[in-house]
C-alpha cells in the first residue's frame, strides 16, 4: 500500500473518530427545552465553529504523527509535493464532497420549508458536512487504489 493510500485511510478514520467524539461531547450540552432562539442559535454556531477548529488542529497533528510513523516504519520519506495524478484525484474528491454537501444543504433548506424544528435543519447540515468530508476521503482512496 502506498503513502497516499495509507494517508487516505488515516484521514478517513480520524475524521470519523473526531466527529463521533465531538458529537458525544456536544449533544448532551444541547439547550434544554424551552430555551430561547438566540440560545439555540448560539449553540449551533458554536457547534460548527468549534468542530471546524478542532478538526483542522486534529488533522494537522494526526498528519505530523502519521508522517513520523511512516518514516520510522518504512524508512521512506513522504512525498514533498503533489503531482498531476494527485491533483486530478484531489479535484474528483472535492467534486464528490461538494455535490454531497450541496445535496445536504438543499435537504436542510427543505426541512425549513416543511416547517421542521430548527435542530433538524442543523442536524442535516452538519451530517452533510461530515458525509462530504468522509466521501472525499473515500473518493481519494478509491482512485489511488483503482486509478482514474
Amino acid at each position: 500500500m502506498t503513502y497516499q493510500e495509507k494517508r487516505s485511510i488515516v484521514t478517513l478514520i480520524s475524521t470519523i473518530l473526531i466527529f463521533a467524539a465531538y458529537c458525544l461531547y456536544m449533544y448532551p450540552r444541547y439547550p434544554e427545552q424551552g430555551a430561547e432562539l438566540s440560545e439555540l442559535l448560539h449553540y449551533w454556531g458554536a457547534f460548527v465553529l468549534v468542530l471546524m477548529l478542532i478538526s483542522i488542529i486534529a488533522h494537522i497533528v494526526i498528519s505530523i504523527v502519521f508522517n513520523i510513523i511512516y518514516r520510522m516504519t518504512t524508512g521512506e520519506k513522504e512525498p514533498g509535493f503533489t503531482d498531476e495524478l494527485d491533483r486530478i484525484i484531489e479535484l474528483r474528491a472535492h467534486r464528490t464532497s461538494f455535490l454531497l454537501f450541496i445535496l445536504g444543504f438543499l435537504c436542510a433548506m427543505g426541512s425549513l420549508v416543511l416547517e421542521q424544528p430548527l435542530y433538524i435543519m442543523f442536524d442535516i447540515l452538519i451530517a452533510a458536512g461530515f458525509l462530504a468530508d468522509v466521501s472525499g476521503s473515500i473518493t481519494k482512496l478509491y482512485h489511488y487504489r483503482r486509478g482514474i
Binding site: Q4, P79, D83, G147
Partner: peptide, 19 residues
C-alpha cells in the same frame, strides 16, 4: 520525471493515462 512513485505505479498498472 518529477512525479511521485504512486504515479509510476498507477501508470505501470494501466490505471492512469499520463498527461
Amino acid at each position: 520525471v518529477g512525479v511521485t512513485r504512486q504515479t509510476i505505479v498507477a501508470l505501470e498498472k494501466g490505471n492512469y493515462s499520463p498527461s
